[in-house]
Design a protein around this nucleic acid. Structure first.
Lengths: 340, 340
DNA sequence: TTGTACGCGTTATCAA
DNA sequence: TTGATAACGCGTACAA
């Protein structure tokens, strides 16, 4: 079928191409009569307007590219889902940019904006995939962009996340309230701002409780289950073993729990484990995992709404928007074991 | 910056727009000298070709839309990831279509092809989001399309999946080999072909073992953790309680395990639980979950490759491509408990 | 309310 | 190897 275009319809309906266009984009401007006339022809031939023509003309692609380090992480998947819904409601589609942490791919997807394939960027990575000119204010060099989960360390960017400092502090405060004083942390990779903020919260809580830092109790993980196992192993080698471990995400907490249990420790009787994220499965591991809940849907919605605002040309001030976290206390945490 | 186009570059480099175009799309046809000359201007001005113009002209969007019921399911996320990688290598981008099972959204995303926003469809839903004309062969009415995970029940479609009948049969055979004869199944929703095939495998295995069917042992779930809990509850109400439960996905298996344990049953001493999918967390629940491994990456790769073939215009015969499953035997299954 | 005419940025065709 | 020119399918001033 030789693709039929707006002017074929126009000819058959005996109107001008402009009128056919109006039937689709602003039907209010067309009289009832011609509206029906055109629609009839459209239905008969099964004509569908070609968006590329329109996009070229309007200089909008109708796409938003979501740059995500790893779509298989439940946290990211949950956020993406909300984002897509919001995008669709506004007539936008989501181009998926799972970068697997590779900078080259981040660049590739970011370039879609400069190539006109996308109108804005939702960025969940931890670096800015642009060449930035330091002489100019950053904001002016960027396309419409929102950074989720505080990946980027800059004040000139629109960001959405939970308050990672406060959330981590609350988690550790809770452990302190259960009597723990040897509290370890399994962190994310070193250069990730969100992880660094959680470290800060961890330290602040310790300080508030008058607990001295012990560097051996802070071990660096990679946010996956396996590294939770590895880090747990390291922690057990310390002479004065921790009585509680705060993991910076649930995956590592699950790995840590498994290792502790394999070593014969009872959770939470011998050691408490706390996670971060509250993924679906946190409730269903044994024992069920105490963790910090992140409102994924709300985060996603906030991200897409802030981006849509920018795409509409509204001013959106830079800086972080904080959404409320919730401490989920389940069965992997308890009071500090009695001293032997 | 008033967007600069190919002819601005052409003017500044003192060549024709056509030559500039060739520099990007077929540099071989351009002499070294003019190549450098053009590239220099391009670099100086930071010109990036606008894909929409090209797309309009070539009548290709360079996009593939992936229609997925639920991106937050680890199985889907794993497949998507592989798909995107393959797409990117071939110069395509993935438009994400998380439909949340809503037919209207499936249609919306399917329409992107007719609107020229996408060139092909990867479909993981369980129905065809098109109006089909029964008078004509189905295949001719469809755009380039691959159906993953045997969602659709038609021979005229290109499909990729594990052999669900054989996989389910193997799982049940294994349970039989451990001495179980009261083997329950927690299935997926009734109208999903992949679930129905697993039911068939379940029945075939029972038959081969000379075990009579007991309809009370087949309960219908919804593929989420909660429904695993619900179904497990139902199974415990049966007088002659099953000694093994084969769940059609890991989420339901995790829910079922939790319920059994809360009821004081030991797994696998009192009851064996088997899952399907082998999601990341299967290994880390307690006890670790025996399950049927699906090769997500391979499935994703096969899907995208078969679609790319179609997009290149090659003939791709309809029908299912089966990829190998693997029985993962962990600690949630064991020998049948002794009769009291 | 409708039609005319042009342009969005690129590629394809042909001729030079 | 390069250039001139005509599409691709649509939106939108502007005029009618």
């Amino acid at each position: 079928m030789a693709t039929l275009g707006i002017k074929d319809i126009a000819a058959l309906a005996k109107v001008s191409p402009a009128t056919v266009s109006r039937v689709f984009s602003s039907p209010d401007l067309v009289s009832e009569k011609t509206l029906h006339k055109v629609k009839k022809v459209v239905d008969e031939l099964g004509y569908r307007p070609n968006r590329m023509g329109a996009n070229l003309r309007t200089r909008k692609s109708g796409n938003i590219v979501a740059i995500i380090p790893d779509i298989t992480k439940p946290v990211n998947a949950g956020i993406i889902r909300a984002i897509e819904k919001g995008a669709q409601n506004a007539g936008y589609s989501i181009l998926l940019g799972d970068t697997q942490g590779v900078e080259k791919m981040e660049r590739h997807y970011a370039d879609m904006v400069t190539h006109g394939q996308a109108d804005g960027i939702l960025l969940f990575g931890s670096r800015l995939p642009f060449k930035v000119n330091c002489d100019q204010p950053l904001r002016q060099q960027l396309p419409p962009l929102v950074n989720g989960n505080e990946g980027i360390d800059s004040d000139e960017i629109v960001k959405v996340a939970v308050d990672n400092v406060a959330a981590a502090k609350a988690a550790v405060n809770y452990l302190v309230s259960m009597g723990h004083r040897r509290i370890a942390a399994i962190t994310g990779p070193k250069n990730i701002p969100s992880s660094n903020k959680r470290v800060r919260g961890y330290y602040e809580a310790l300080e508030d409780a008058g607990i001295e830092r012990d560097d051996r109790l802070l071990v660096v993980g990679r946010y996956d289950v396996k590294s939770g196992v590895d880090c747990a192993e390291k922690l057990l080698q310390i002479n004065e073993r921790p009585t509680a471990v705060f993991c910076f995400n649930d995956d590592m907490a699950i790995g840590a729990m498994q290792h502790f249990q394999q070593q014969g420790l009872k959770i939470p009787d011998d050691i408490s484990v706390m996670g971060f994220d509250d993924i679906n499965y946190a409730e269903y591991v044994s024992p069920s995992l105490s963790t910090v809940h992140q409102p994924l849907q709300e985060i996603g919605e906030a991200c897409i709404n802030l981006l849509l605002k920018q795409l509409r040309g509204e001013e959106v001030p830079a800086g972080s928007r904080y959404l409320p976290y919730t401490l989920m206390i389940r069965n992997s945490t308890g009071v500090v074991p009695k001293q032997k």
